[in-house]
Amino acid sequence: MASLYERLGGEAAVNAAVDIFYRKVLSDDRVNSFFSDVDMEAQAAKQKGFLTMVFGGPNNYTGKDMRDGHKHLVERGLNDSHVDAIIELLGGTLQELGVADADIQEVADIANSVRDDVLNR
C-alpha cells in the first residue's frame, strides 16, 4: 500500500498546499499574530517543511528542533488552542485539495504527535 505521503501526492501536494495553508493562517485572528514576521519567504519555507512532515514526507525534524523552534512563541502565549486552530486550518486546506477524510485524520495525528514538543512540555 502506498504511504500517506505518496497518497497525498508527495512534493507536488506540499507545493499546492503551502499557499492555501499560509493564506488561511494569515487570515485567522486566532493564530496570525504568531505569523506576523515580515519575511514571508522564510515563513513559507518553514511551512513547507512543516507540511512535508505532517504529510508523512522525508524530514529530519527532531523533538529538540520542535522545542527550540517554538520556544519563543510559547513565551508569547502559544498554547493548545493555537495548535488546535492550526490542525483545523490544515484539515480545511486538505479538504479544499480533495483529500479523503481518513488521510486528513492521519495528517492530524502526525501534527498531534509533535504537540508536546511544540508547546515545550
Partner: peptide, 27 residues
C-alpha cells in the same frame, strides 16, 4: 541547514562553475 529534504531552503548555495541536476533547484 534544517530539513535536509529540499523544503526549507536553508542550505541554498550558488554555482560558480558547472551545472547541477534539476532536482537540486526544485522549488
Amino acid at each position: 541547514n534544517n530539513c535536509r529534504a529540499g523544503a526549507c531552503q536553508s542550505c541554498i548555495m550558488q554555482l560558480t562553475k558547472g551545472s547541477v541536476p534539476e532536482r537540486a533547484q526544485k522549488g
